[in-house]
Write a protein that binds this DNA or RNA. Sequence first.
DNA 1: TCCTGTGAATGGCTTCACAGCG
DNA 2: CGCTGTGAAGCCATTCACAGGA
Lengths: 232, 232
Amino acid sequence: MTHLTDTEAAKPSGQEIPPAALARLTIYLRVLNSLMAAGTERISSEQLAESAGVSPPTLRKDLSHLGSFGTRGVGYDVRLVSQEISAALGLMHEWKVAIVGVGNLGRALAGYSGFSTKGFGVVALFDADPLVVGSEVAGLQVSPITELESALRKTGANMAVMAVPAGVAQGLCDRLVAAGVMSILSFAPVVLQVPASVQLRKVDMATELQILAYHAQRAQETENNSESSARP
Amino acid sequence: MTHLTDTEAAKPSGQEIPPAALARLTIYLRVLNSLMAAGTERISSEQLAESAGVSPPTLRKDLSHLGSFGTRGVGYDVRLVSQEISAALGLMHEWKVAIVGVGNLGRALAGYSGFSTKGFGVVALFDADPLVVGSEVAGLQVSPITELESALRKTGANMAVMAVPAGVAQGLCDRLVAAGVMSILSFAPVVLQVPASVQLRKVDMATELQILAYHAQRAQETENNSESSARP
DNA sequence: TCCTGTGAATGGCTTCACAGCG
DNA sequence: CGCTGTGAAGCCATTCACAGGA
């Protein structure tokens, strides 16, 4: 009753992939690609699951969201599964990415080799600093932030990565949205408000470290407790 | 029946905080700290929830994991809640962080101002490149990777951030674990294998972009379908 | 009366065991 | 016979509506 989009009901292409499964699919894709580079042609769910750090049933269930393309009694064709995941994730054509903010982080992102090999191409760089504007980074000339809208249109960028200070993030984010960018990845340590139609993802190092600190503290407390409370 | 650790059942201090709630708590903390800097002393769950981008019930439930320190009919004391979250996350004492890999990314991380103000201090930098070793980054001298173990011991680092190429990540990770580091944040685009006792978190830009691509593709397909399918 | 705190219900993810096909 | 594919069950977390106190 919930999904009315099935025209044939043969392949689950209209189904939405659960977020947790989606994140894992990207991991499988990476493992498969490195297997392919190493010349491996076939792999079982058990081996692939171990390489990806998940349980075999989880792996099979995740792949089943895309369809059934394994060979029973044998395993998976590495190239085929890689291709199917790529297709499901929308990586068959290249996405054009603009990087906003060319500090150390922006430079690191611009030079990230994983970009070009995996369906993403950096097409524009922006910065507000006059000393940085005009310089060449990773083969691209840095544009002034004043030209954001025009350069986005000219390059046809449809994704943006924000590597800017917290204070200016929301303003730039609004400009990106107004310019028609529907997918944004932000490294700025602030909560950004965007319309529901825009996909926003956040990478936040402070959050990650704080989560680690929480677990580390818990581990220490448990240790202390088991020291002092020698009693079942 | 599940939790047998309650000695008094008054304050939920022995309870484990659900992962999703934990991640949100770090966001609340950031919002609260910026409110505090702005001089705000009180805030309602509704306002705080909006600033953090969550629903009010979610916020209240999350905070209830730490105890009850709001005033009914009034709201929350900004400073108090900030302090409680900090205590729960283990941020009352400073964690000593070593950064492994001083490329553009490592440099960006070393210079990240959020570190010092929020319970984390960078105490050591490592790199394999002889050209980088010995140089000063963010007020610290870069040590050669050969001195990893000795420098970790000397500085008392108990957390590590890895900003290294995929190929060398597992080897360095093993060395960190062997040296007693129990909390690792990795930016390397590979699946790292660690003992269950070690907390490993991963930040993966490729994964984030791929997830964005998936949603962007879905949005496009939906758009196309509603165009062409006037009626099957 | 207001806003917080929480118990109950919903929904989704993971796990399991078995069916299905090469 | 081996390994994949999947339906069903169990479990966990989030969500909601209401109770509870200042």
